[in-house]
Structures are given as structure tokens and as C-alpha cells.
Design a protein around this nucleic acid. Structure first.
Lengths: 235, 235
DNA sequence: CTGACGCTTCGACGTGGGACGAAATGTCGG
DNA sequence: CCGACATTTCGTCCCACGTCGAAGCGTCAG
């Protein structure tokens, strides 16, 4: 259960953003225009010397680019991924402490079962994936022979999914459940069949789906009577 | 030219991630499982006391949740947006210093002219938007009367674009040019006409498009002889 | 050539915060 | 009720870093 190696040192970049003055400079630059050092100093409310030191560090860290033009030096964000970091950081920084009732009801619906792009997610997605693994239908990022037969019987075009240019069966980390569900071409193919058969139907809230009675019976029969437990073990 | 108010204090959250020990804890939690305090201390290579202090700060900052279970305390990331921050931060932290020749050639093609979803971006997109504004065809986030006539003559279904549920004419910040181009329903409609007329054709690289000779002439005539300059003024 | 201006480098100062060991709190097994 | 264990709190040390004024480079105007 290894994940893609994405262990770049996060701390140094975060440290660059962590200083209030540098954060002010970066958000000023978020507008997309290149700004002169002096102007940034004024905006951030520090002396030219201080701003210069900060800009040097941001430059060294690769968060900004500089364009020398006459006796001015214009700084700008070094790329759209930097802007993305700032925006996503702003989003979590502005997180409201609590949610309204309406929002929390919708949130609960989405936690139960929803689509993630085109495949099943939420407790339902995680549960389905667990049952595929527990039943010996799926292992090591691929279907077993038993799994191929199971899905063929259900009407899933596994061969077609394999020919697709998408990744076949990547695990997709589910953040309300903090566990993985099945994504990619296979996840989409399975979910397509579930919706066609009417085992799941789309709800009013955009990405929500709901299990129908037929779906409950069908899935139960498919996995030969095992209960679909939806407990949330912490480990 | 105001932007959406998104000026949450970024620095405090960044400061939480900026410490190497806390960053190690957070990335350990990125796997999605809830982990006990002692385990996190071991993973981060610090004493239990130190880890505890860090976890308290992360908790206070709202980056992690805690679940008390017996004499253990299991910590986990507080939401998927936190995970998003970490991942996007990892992406910029791992940025390769230089690009291969092939990549840089493709990058140059894309910088010149490309589609952004369904509308024109890159130098071409920014240039087109500038000429619309400079010619008095577009102002204050909407077409002027002259602009309506200009685009009607070209065959753009402006009325249809207005009826669309998409935003009509939002400015879309272009990160290779660091300037805005035209997006939304209107941007898509215009780009559709440009492609239909063969003024731009799609290139081999996925999102690349290229200006044809007819396109050069047509645009030149449209804007009554003004040159299409592609200089890059910094301000 | 000279003065004005923009920016960076240098030197010195002060504070914030991360590290650990030891002791306190809390929880489980018997 | 009592030891074993997990976790937090407390006290202390110390270094890293943000801040500014002054001095040093470049660049432009005349």
C-alpha cells in the first residue's frame, strides 16, 4: 500500500510563506502584475532594506522571478503553481469554524455516497472497494481472475476499460473517509453499470448519489450475502 | 480591477507547516490514517514532549483533528483541503530547476497560443483581449455597442453566449503571460468562430493552437490595420 | 561629471520559538 | 486501589531570523 513518492521537503517553501511580511508581498503579487521592489516594500509596510532581504530569499527559494529594467527591479510570482499554493492556503486559512445546518445535512449526504468525477466515492465507494479486496476479487492494483468473472457477470466492460488511455485501477484517497476507493477507468466502468442498473440514482445535490432497494439487494446477492457494514474504525 | 476578496491571513497556517518536525508529522498523516501521538513522535524523530507541543499547535490551528481512544490520542488531518495544501506545496517544492529541450520547445509553443478549456489563452489570448479593450470594444467586464457589432460581423453568437448559464465574460488570469485574457461563454464563442473560420488550427501538442495566414489577415482587417504586437511590457 | 534615485549589502539588536528532561495528569489491567 | 504506560505540562536553554539605519553599487537625467 505504498503511495506515489511525493516527499519533497515541504517545510522550506512553507517557511518562505510563513513570515507575515513575505506573505504580504506574495499576496500583493497574486494579482499577476510584476511590481517593483520599492512598491512592494511600501505595500508590506517595511523598509526597503527589509523588503530587499525578503525578496532575495523568495528569489532564492524560486517562488518569485525578477526582471531588471533600468534602475527598477520588477518581481513577480514564478509560476502558476505558486499562485495555486497561495490560493489553496488562503482557503484553509479562511475556513469558517462551523457549518450551517443546511450545509451539514448536504455534507452528510455527500459523505454517505457521491461521485468523484465519474466513479463512486464516500462511504459507499470505500465500502465497495473493501468488499472487492476482502472477497479476493482485487489485489495488487488489479482484478484477480475471480474479480474479472464477477464484474463480467455484472455487465462491466473490463476489457474496454483496460484498453482505455486512463489509468486502469488507481486507488483514490477519499478524504471524508480517509480511506481509498477505486478510481480510474475500472472505477468509472463499474459506477456506470451501477447507475444503468438503477442500483444507485443521482440525488439533487450535485455530486450526491443514493443506494436504491434494488441496489441493496443486488449488491448483497453479488457478494453472496455478506453484510455491508459502514463502521468507521479509527486505525 | 478588484479581485475577489481572498485576503485571509496566510502566514499563520504557513508557519504551522514551516517547521520541519511539524511538516514531517503532517506528511505522515497525509496517508489518511489516524496515528497516535507517540507513533508520530517516533516518525518525526523527536521526543514525545516535543511532538506533543507540535500537535497542540496543529490542533489549535485547525490543521488536525484528534480522537481520544483509551489512553491513546489519534491525530488525523482535519480535512481534505489541508491535504490539498500539503500536496500542492509538495509539488512546488519538488520543482525541477530546468526543463529538457523537448519540454521547453513545447512550452514555448504553448506560451504563444493555446486553449484554456475552450477559450484562447497564451500570448494570442492576451493580445486579442488587449485589442478588444484598446479598440473600445470591451470595457467594464462587458462588450460595448461597438464590440457587439464587431463580433456580430464576425459571426459570433453573442446573444447565445449571454443566455448561457456560464459567466458571460470573466477575465481569466494567464500565468505564462501574467495578464488577463477573455474566458467564459463569450471567450468560448469567439474562440469557436476563430477555429471554424480556420484562423487558428489545433496543433499536435494537446492544448496548442497556431495562427494561420488567413487568421493573420483576418484579424488584421478586423482591427483595421493595427499591428498585432507581441511584446511583453512588464507593467 | 555630478547629483538624485532605486535597490542591495552590512552590522547590530531583540524576540520568538523549538529542543529536551523531569514532573504531573490520565487511562488501562488486575 | 496500584503499578505500567501514553500523553501533556513545566522550566530552561539557545539559536535562528526579522528589523532597521547607514553605507555601497548601479542607473538615469542634465
Amino acid at each position: 500500500m505504498e503511495y506515489i513518492a511525493h516527499d519533497a521537503d515541504i517545510a522550506p517553501v512553507a517557511a518562505l510563506i510563513a513570515d507575515p511580511t513575505r506573505a504580504a508581498i506574495l499576496t500583493a503579487l497574486l494579482g499577476g502584475r510584476a511590481l517593483a521592489a520599492g512598491e512592494l516594500a511600501r505595500m508590506a509596510g517595511v523598509s526597503a532594506a527589509t523588503a530587499s532581504a525578503h525578496l532575495a530569499r523568495l528569489l532564492d527559494g524560486g517562488l518569485v522571478d525578477v526582471v531588471r529594467q533600468g534602475r527598477h527591479r520588477y518581481y513577480r510570482l514564478s509560476g502558476h503553481d505558486v499562485a495555486e499554493v497561495l490560493e489553496v492556503l488562503a482557503r484553509v486559512s479562511a475556513r469558517p469554524p462551523v457549518r450551517s445546518l443546511r450545509q451539514s445535512r448536504q455534507a452528510r449526504q455527500l459523505e454517505e455516497a457521491r461521485t468523484c468525477y465519474d466513479h463512486l466515492a464516500g462511504r459507499a465507494g470505500v465500502g465497495l472497494f473493501d468488499r472487492l479486496k476482502d472477497g479476493g476479487y482485487f489485489a495488487a492494483h488489479d482484478l484477480t481472475d475471480a474479480g474479472e468473472r464477477l464484474l463480467a457477470g455484472l455487465g462491466v466492460d473490463v476489457a474496454g476499460a483496460r484498453r482505455s488511455r486512463r489509468r486502469f485501477a488507481p486507488e483514490c484517497l477519499d478524504w471524508t473517509e480517509r480511506r481509498s476507493h477505486l478510481g480510474g477507468a475500472l472505477g468509472a466502468a463499474i459506477t456506470g453499470v451501477l447507475l444503468e442498473r438503477g442500483w444507485y440514482v443521482r440525488g439533487k445535490v450535485p455530486r450526491a448519489v443514493a443506494l436504491t432497494d434494488e441496489g441493496r439487494e443486488g449488491l448483497s446477492a453479488l457478494f453472496s450475502g455478506k453484510e455491508l457494514t459502514s463502521g468507521t474504525p479509527v486505525t
